[in-house]
Amino acid sequence: MALNTPQITPTKKITVRAIGEELPRGDYQRCPQCDMLFSLPEINSHQSAYCPRCQAKIRDGRDWSLTRLAAMAFTMLLLMPFAWGEPLLHIWLLGIRIDANVMQGIWQMTKQGDAITGSMVFFCVIGAPLILVTSIAYLWFGNRLGMNLRPVLLMLERLKEWVMLDIYLVGIGVASIKVQDYAHIQAGVGLFSFVALVILTTVTLSHLNVEELWERFYPQRPATRRDEKLRVCLGCHFTGYPDQRGRCPRCHIPLRLRRRHSLQKCWAALLASIVLLLPANLLPISIIYLNGGRQEDTILSGIMSLASSNIAVAGIVFIASILVPFTKVIVMFTLLLSIHFKCQQGLRTRILLLRMVTWIGRWSMLDLFVISLTMSLINRDQILAFTMGPAAFYFGAAVILTILAVEWLDSRLLWDAHESGNARFDD
């Protein structure tokens, strides 16, 4: 018995066209964080690309023209004298008006014999932002004059995390709450300039795509075929072959399989920071003279006294001054041990922890910024005066060393310790 099946006739004509040209192939790229070699397709503007294995951002879609970056830099340069030299806060102490600005706080630190601690604050609040705007201006002028731009481009990517104007702005709020127990506070004209400078700096850093600047100024022929001998440069993120001198053909720094002496430098910085954190938390970090009496505060006791007036601000200072430094030390110690013992479990967790400490590390400088600003506000000789204690130097040095330890660690070593050939990683 035959089955009668109805015929289905399409209502619209289906047209099949042959592909007349070869589909576009992607360029081969190595991930600078996990060293995976993959094919990167062509990316349009405002599109980002991520590593298929570790999800690290390979290409950032946010990109401004150099002219727009230069305009932002010149605007920031105009704001800087007002943000640093004009009063941020006014207080009335014992019937006398006192003005506080950024430069005055750094000068008070240096004047009291601790120039190293003052230079830490100076670099993060004044030096690094000033280098940022002058570097962008150098790129703008240098591109037109045919100057060598490689050193500036190499420095810009590392400079971003040292620009800490946003953290200093939080420190202004913390210092205001600490001082309000002794005097009446009012915002100064410099505060508005400083807030504007923070906003412009944040926007500029978020749109400063150094890798795209490398592509514009020093374009290189990408690798179009897969080759395990391809290496990625950690300076400019170019994937290719080393030249005859073993250097990256684009930025001219040595092109090595792994960062040289990464573990040794990381261990040295980490152990030194552990040693410095002990006096930083045991010795007094601030000293207040009130009517001839002397009151010393460690980091913890200062947080407890701050909690009596504002528990939320005390929580912020606790996280930045105690929780973050010790968390960074514990995480980095764990990561280094996992590399030495070739741990194969929990790779995803370790990668996330490394990215976390990379982002939060700079916030530990908050305590030094609060001390710097408070020193310029309260300084009335023996009637009422505020000065920093010996722990300030140890704390600042420990924070900087932990930042350097994270920067010096080559994250690809975590993958080397893991089993080879993993296309995915999980716990």
Rank of each mutant, 00 (worst) to 15 (best):
L153H: 03
V133M: 09
G235W: 02
F74L: 12
N143Q: 08
K160G: 07
G173K: 03
I360H: 11
M76C: 03
M356G: 12
F38V: 07
W359I: 15
P222M: 08
Y241E: 05
C233K: 00
R259H: 10
L88F: 10
M1N: 00
I383V: 06
L23N: 10
Y138V: 05
G246S: 08
V121I: 09
R68A: 02
A268N: 07
T402D: 10
L88W: 02
R350N: 12
G173M: 07
M164Y: 05
D166L: 15
F194A: 13
I126Y: 04
H237Q: 10
P219V: 14
R225K: 09
L230T: 06
K160Q: 10
A320E: 00
R355I: 09
P325V: 03
G396H: 01
Q55F: 11
V170P: 12
L401I: 13
N291P: 08
D381W: 12
A272P: 01
Y394I: 01
A307P: 06
K342A: 13
S193A: 14
D381N: 06
R424Y: 13
G20V: 12
Q33M: 14
T11R: 13
L154D: 02
A320G: 12
R250H: 04
F217Y: 07
G240V: 05
R355M: 15
Q186G: 10
L282K: 11
G235K: 01
D426H: 14
P52S: 11
A100K: 04
M120T: 04
R17C: 10
F82L: 10
V210G: 11
S376I: 13
N4M: 09
A137C: 03
K229D: 06
N101C: 04
E211Q: 12
I19Q: 11
I116W: 01
A137L: 08
A196K: 03
C54L: 00
S372T: 11
R59Y: 12
K13Y: 06
V152P: 04
L205D: 13
H418G: 12
G188K: 11
L377R: 00
M375N: 01
P41T: 12
D63Y: 15
T134R: 00
G361Y: 01
A385S: 10
A307M: 08
M103P: 08
L200A: 06
F369K: 05
T110P: 09
P87I: 10
Q220H: 07
K13P: 11
R380C: 02
E407S: 08
I14L: 12
M375Y: 02
Y182D: 08
L276D: 08
I339H: 07
D243R: 04
L156G: 07
L169D: 01
H207A: 15
E86Y: 05
T327K: 13
R294C: 03
L255G: 10
G142M: 04
G293Y: 04
D427N: 15
S364C: 04
M356A: 13
F393V: 14
Y182W: 08
R260S: 07
E407C: 07
L401Y: 05
I185G: 05
I330R: 01
L368I: 09
I106R: 00
Y218W: 06
K160I: 06
I106S: 02
Q264P: 02
E161K: 05
F326L: 12
V16L: 10
V189Y: 08
M109W: 04
Q108D: 14
G235D: 03
N310Y: 05
D427V: 15
A83C: 05
G396P: 03
D297H: 04
I288V: 08
S135G: 09
Q180W: 11
G95S: 09
M36W: 11
S364H: 02
R221P: 10
L149V: 13
T202V: 11
Q7V: 10
S364N: 00
V203L: 14
G61W: 15
F194C: 12
L159R: 01
F395G: 01
Q7P: 13
G361K: 01
E161R: 08
G105K: 01
V317E: 01
